[in-house]
Amino acid sequence: MEALTQFLSHYLIYIIMGLSVATALGIVFSKNAVHSVISMLFTMVLIAGVYLLFDAEFLAAVQLLVYAGGIIVLFLFVVLLVALHKLENLRLYNTYSLFSIILVILLIVILGATFLTMPFGEAPKVVSNIVAGGSTEAVAMSLYTKFILPFEIASVLLLVALIGAIILTKSGAEQ
């Protein structure tokens, strides 16, 4: 029992994090855009795994539904539509890529060092607000009472995006 809980709470999350960093690098450094999309799919699934280990099972399911079920399919669709073979002989990276890489590594090192030296408290062993009755109920109670106004605004935002996407992709002949 001890060994398994130890594994689940300590090492599994590091393994998932490492894998997701590797697949995230795959998004940026793949030559073929379809490979980028596959890397992104794996990244999103692994991030859903991270959510699961933080007792956010509802968010993990939503992550899978929204990203794997919707967003990445859209990406793949557009990538397949924009004839990739025409892009094959183009340059993949910008001219100042090396400079950008150094900057980003600096960003990660500085921020990472700051976070590692910050005194954060320990995680509570028992979480009462989230897990009681599952995170679904807790999220729903909060979403429909305290955050009802942002929730309504989010729905309007989605509607606007829906209409905007339709108008933008309509071809000139139909307008």
Binding site: E57, F58, A61, I72
Partner: peptide
């Protein structure tokens, strides 16, 4: 799982790929 049905829907949406 306490997200049973949602889990099935989430997982089966990956099959499209």
């Amino acid at each position: 799982l306490n997200i049973g049905i949602l889990y099935i829907l989430a997982i089966s949406s990956i099959g499209i790929y």
